[in-house]
């Protein structure tokens, strides 16, 4: 699973390998890189330390820096203070729906822009590119009014539907489809009597499954971590996403970080587990130009 590289990387890797810079690696290179690993990992480690100790151990001088045995005490408090299980489930539903929907809709539109001829294709694609630049985050007030008119306030679809397709995803899938799917193959399929839909479903989609998976992953992570929009549109605790649940913990116990840290740690674990399996794919995706959308 982790060893398979996305098809995009396959297309560029041989060229890159030939060019790769291969000088002697000095000791301080490792020193700096391991320091950056430590910096990247330490806050998560600290989250774990605080959520396994009681507050006295963390606030003594000097504070303890090793995990304690208090993990389940705090974890239990997290689950009883806020509906944490429900919020985890909500986040899975929201992020999962967005990821799957983006995979399908963006591949479909990317296929149309990459391989189909239709009137107005190029102007429409330019519009897609322009929409990538629009910071829609700033229009949250009217967006809230729309949701209010749809009577979607305090519902999960208010979180899901606006994120179901993205300009970035279309751009990303189009790039992949135009390099991977060659015209001869499409011609052959046409001659054999495939409809456009069949070419998409039987030929194009399987070819870019891997790139679509990376897109889905990034969409999942973004949706899982989203905060501003859920904060505005969700009100009742049973509709909280995990991020809102952690915030609720923080509000009640600001001085005692233990509970909020424990919640943060528990909310990060699912993504960390996911990352262990698909981290290499995500690294390849980011390096391949999966810029944040």
């Amino acid at each position: 699973m982790t060893t398979s590289t996305p098809d995009a990387v396959v297309t560029t890797a041989p060229r890159l390998r030939k060019r790769a810079f291969a000088g002697r690696v000095r000791w301080w290179t490792y020193a700096f890189l391991f320091a950056s690993v430590a910096v990247s990992a330490f806050p998560l480690y600290w989250m774990f330390v605080v959520s396994t100790n009681d507050s006295a151990a963390v606030s003594q001088t000097p504070p303890t820096v090793v995990p304690g045995g208090n993990f389940f005490v705090l974890a239990e408090q997290v689950f009883t203070t806020v509906p944490f299980v429900q919020s985890l489930a909500n986040s899975f539903v929201v992020a999962g729906s967005i990821a799957i929907s983006q995979m399908i809709l963006c591949t479909l539109a990317g296929f149309a822009f990459a391989k189909l001829e239709f009137r107005g294709r190029d102007p429409l694609f330019i519009i897609v590119l322009i929409t990538m630049m629009v910071p829609t985050q700033l229009a949250v007030i009217p967006l809230y009014m729309i949701m209010s008119n749809l009577e979607w306030i305090d519902t999960l679809q208010a979180l899901i539907v606006p994120g179901m397709a993205s300009a970035f995803g279309i751009f990303w899938m189009r790039q992949h489809l135009s390099t991977v799917l060659n015209n001869e193959l499409m011609q052959a399929a046409r001659i054999d009597g495939c409809s456009t839909w069949q070419i998409y479903w039987r030929i194009a989609f399987p070819l870019v499954r891997s790139a679509g998976f990376v897109l889905g992953l990034l969409a999942f992570v973004t949706a899982w971590n989203d905060f501003l929009w859920p904060l505005i549109v969700i009100q009742s605790p049973e509709n909280y996403t995990v991020q809102l649940a952690i915030k609720a913990l923080q509000r009640q116990y600001f001085v005692d970080y233990g509970l909020a840290m424990s919640g943060s740690f528990l909310a990060t674990i699912p993504l960390l587990i996911l990352f262990i399996f698909v981290g290499r794919k995500m690294v390849a995706g980011v390096m391949d130009g999966a810029f944040k959308g």
Binding site: V37, M47, N225, I246, S264, T268
Partner: peptide
Amino acid sequence: MLVPYITSVVATTIV
């Protein structure tokens, strides 16, 4: 190096 990217801003801020 990509671990911070998957950590939510909320968790990051709290820690």
